[in-house]
Design a protein around this nucleic acid. Structure first.
Length: 220
DNA sequence: GCGACAG
DNA sequence: ATCTTGTCGC
């Protein structure tokens, strides 16, 4: 697939924050999706020591959820981990992995926050904007906002609040398992986002799927 | 000033 | 992200 926009990644923290403020107004926080036939799970992380940043992508057919394509990219880490600036560390590798795909996914489920972020531009939103594909932030822990604990029932969720607004959902994808932090990336509404995350967790847990893709791709 | 802080 | 010990549920 080809990329839509690009910008420099050689930035200071202050420049990165300024860029987030500049990009934020371009986010579309309502449903603008094509029929979803391919969902991509995007997993980000780095190797022990932090010298190498990795991104793995697993593309699943929807709604069957079988894996049709995987990609892995590694790059020397060029930006430190700073809470709120994760995308500047991880996205170069993610974009490189996405470029390897034969066909563009219709929806991205990205490891990390979307608008549940101090400047409403977490990695999922930043990514969705750059590639112009609907995206959802799926994080394992909280970065921003306050919430009640969701009931211990599959599908239950509570709002994630900040500044009197609902910025995401704390979603129980399985009973007796820590809930996921869902927030909008780009071109999708919260109701739709929750629906897709639950649909993708019916037979596979997406984090496990991407991790599996990560391992498969690593052995080459 | 002090705590909080995606991966 | 990564490391570790103790506890719980299947």
């Amino acid at each position: 697939m080809k990329l839509q926009f690009s910008h420099s990644w050689n930035l200071t923290s202050a420049e990165a924050i300024a860029l987030q403020r500049k990009l934020r107004p371009h986010l579309i926080l309502e449903d603008r999706l094509k029929p979803v036939q391919r969902v991509a799970g995007v997993d980000v992380g780095f190797e022990a020591g932090g010298a190498v940043t990795r991104a793995a992508v697993a593309v699943l057919r929807y709604p069957e959820l079988d894996v049709v394509e995987t990609a892995l990219a590694q790059r020397p880490t060029a930006f430190p981990y700073v809470p709120g600036l994760l995308s500047f560390r991880e996205l170069p590798a993610v974009l490189e992995a996405l470029e390897q795909l034969r066909e563009s996914p219709d929806l991205l489920l990205c490891d990390g926050q979307g608008i549940a972020h101090p400047r409403q531009l977490g990695i999922a939103s930043h990514l969705g904007l750059l590639v112009d594909i609907p995206s959802i932030g799926v994080a394992k822990t909280r970065l921003y906002g306050t919430h009640d604990e969701p009931p211990n029932v599959r599908g239950a969720w509570t709002p994630l609040w900040a500044g009197g607004e609902i910025i995401g959902a704390v979603l129980r994808t399985r009973p007796n398992v820590k809930p996921l932090y869902i927030s909008l990336g780009h071109r999708i509404s919260l109701d739709t986002a929750i629906r897709y995350v639950m649909a993708c967790c019916t037979r596979y847990r997406l984090p496990e799927t991407t991790r599996h893709a990560h391992r498969l791709a690593s052995r080459r």
